[in-house]
Design a protein around this nucleic acid. Structure first.
Lengths: 346, 346
DNA sequence: ACGTTGCTTGACAACGTTGTCGGTCTGCGG
DNA sequence: CCGCAGACCGACAACGTTGTCAAGCAACGT
């Protein structure tokens, strides 16, 4: 009833279980003839090593844990896809879980991964600012943060600040002075950094930050239709809109198109499907989840070999993809520019 | 260095490891006072049961395996998301892997799940038509197929045939006689069923199936731009287009909009993000991955309780969401004034 | 002939958990 | 007072694998 074990293979091929173990693990000093006899038995029985026993013995198993906000978010789905693809080459499985943005759940899932499943490593888009309770496992389980940086662990991120500056600066150069920021959310480091980029560019251009132009999210649920109504109904309404994340971008563009105001300038942080098909096509800051995911697991694999160097922040380059919606001029003169930010490790 | 084990808890609370085990597993006949002492020690040490040891002992572990085409496909990403959400409530983890549509890889991943990780169950979108090698594990590991049915195992699918008929029949009733079918792909049962629905409706309407209107995929990579060029360049070009899957739908709509031919009637099998924002909004057959995923894991959990009934096929309902692009009349329209309904939010 | 080296192999313990079995203790009826 | 049921608890084996240690054996140099 149970799958065949190492003992069955040993019996079949007339050797000890230890020899089978040696063959399976590709150790040297096994007689070629013995090896082939064992391999034949393995093949005949369809033997597959039991990972539970392995990780019990070794203390670290054949899977890596990936913990993200939600798999329903295309950004994270692509990220996990990249990780899974690379993990496969390494013979590692992927254990995936979502936090739903709940710190308590994040902690439970993490301890489940590390103490429960004894994963070989963790890639996490952290909800909490820091994860002090992971310190205890530092030596045994490598951790890499993605999207949102942690100071205590290696992190793979994009330069949110510079990328946002690029977008806002473009608005300013096109003559916009009333620029709205969608979905400010103090819970996330990334959004805080993006908001900082927004305010800094305005300051440097001598434009006062109008709180009425900043959409707050308290609990993560913003009604984009209502918020857009509010913004465009202001006495001095915005002439350019910045969506600080992909979800906001989709909500925003959907609303704009539905109420027929798609002619207003807008840029999204994060690309999304069909952004280039809309009229006008949506300009966006392009952060590639595939590149980020690949960099993260690559770093994780390195950490498995040589653990615990200094925590480092890896910055994946972003670019501002000009498609039309971001190049709509404001009330003043117009200039265009294209550039790329990031690309070096900090 | 290792996480605390049951032994540490036992030492802390002055009982035997067996008693700790009893407490952890909520068994009866543990003195309340002892129980609380143990629980306190568990809390203090941050003890988490080692799943490897558990599954080694019990022969079946605390994770379910999910095997799909690719996580980069939003349909499957949402499917896995639904599964993960439900699994969490059950205290089960999710091991996810992709096949890349490779049967060999499918088989490797499956045996890895079952014999290697001893998963508590498998949910799979099968690539191969049948999976005979799973018969051996039938009694010990429940399997549920999603999206593409298996005859030997429980399956959760949609009625591809009927749903496609609905769409094609709408085209016919609107006076279309030249209807193209994008992305025929003989490898998949679902696509074969959809194609069957297409040909059957044409036959019942007395319209001959023109092979020139059927786009074949040999290896899964269709150049939608080139294919659309070919179709619309025919002497007698199609007046209505049917995309047999979401990927084709995105490729098709992107192309149509890019070449300014979005006025041609089209319906997609599978909803996609922003389909309701395009002009015209894209009508589509709506198969909800969340419902499918939830149904699949629900069935899997049932199977864990009472294994191996007769294999059954569960059909999740679909609907044809009218948004505009599918209601564009053809040359022989009986009724000229078919008005399009502005799409409602998805 | 003999020790030494290198190659090949196996016996055994251990990883953390749970199932089996048996033990101790309390309270109760006879 | 004894016996017995029931509640509570612990020693031990076992799950499948790998690390440790040592043994067997051939070839080699002296």
């Amino acid at each position: 009833m149970r799958p065949p074990g190492i003992k069955d293979v040993a019996a079949q091929s007339g050797v000890s279980i230890k020899t089978v173990s040696r063959v399976v693990n590709g150790e040297a000093s096994v007689h070629p003839e013995t090896r082939s006899r064992v391999l034949e038995a393995i093949d005949r029985l369809g033997y597959v090593p039991n990972t539970a026993a392995r990780s019990l013995k070794s203390g670290t198993g054949g899977a890596i844990g990936v913990l993200i906000d939600s798999l329903a978010d295309p950004f994270f789905a692509s990220l996990v896809s990249a990780i899974e693809t690379r993990a496969l080459k390494e013979g590692l499985s992927v254990l995936v879980a979502s936090t739903g943005l709940d710190e308590r759940r994040e902690r439970d899932q993490l301890t489940g991964f590390i103490a429960g499943h004894q994963v070989a490593g963790v890639i996490i888009a952290p909800v909490a600012g820091e994860l002090p309770y992971l310190e205890a496992f530092r030596q045994v389980t490598p951790v890499v943060a993605v999207d949102r940086a942690l100071t205590a662990f290696d992190s793979v991120v994009v330069d949110d600040y510079a990328a946002t500056q690029l977008a806002i600066r473009q608005f300013v150069e096109l003559g916009h002075t009333r620029i709205a920021f969608y979905d400010r959310d103090e819970r996330f480091l990334t959004i805080r950094r993006r908001y900082q980029g927004y305010t800094d560019v305005l300051a440097e251009a001598g434009i006062e930050v109008d709180p009425a132009l900043v959409s707050w999210t308290i609990d993560g649920s913003l009604d984009y239709a209502a918020e857009t109504d509010r913004l465009l109904g202001l006495d001095d309404p915005p002439t350019a809109l910045f969506a600080s994340n992909a979800k906001a971008a989709i909500g925003l563009t959907t609303t704009l198109h539905r109420i027929g105001r798609e002619g207003i300038a807008h840029i999204a942080f994060g690309d999304f499907s069909l952004a280039d098909v809309l009229r006008p096509a949506v300009s966006c800051i392009n952060q590639d989840p595939f590149v980020i995911g690949t960099a993260a697991i690559e770093r994780l694999l390195e950490l498995r070999e040589s653990p615990s160097n200094e925590p480092r922040e890896w910055v994946v380059p972003t670019s501002l993809t000009q498609r039309g919606s971001g190049e709509i001029p404001g009330p003043n003169a117009a200039v265009t520019s294209t550039s790329t930010v990031g690309g070096t490790a900090a």
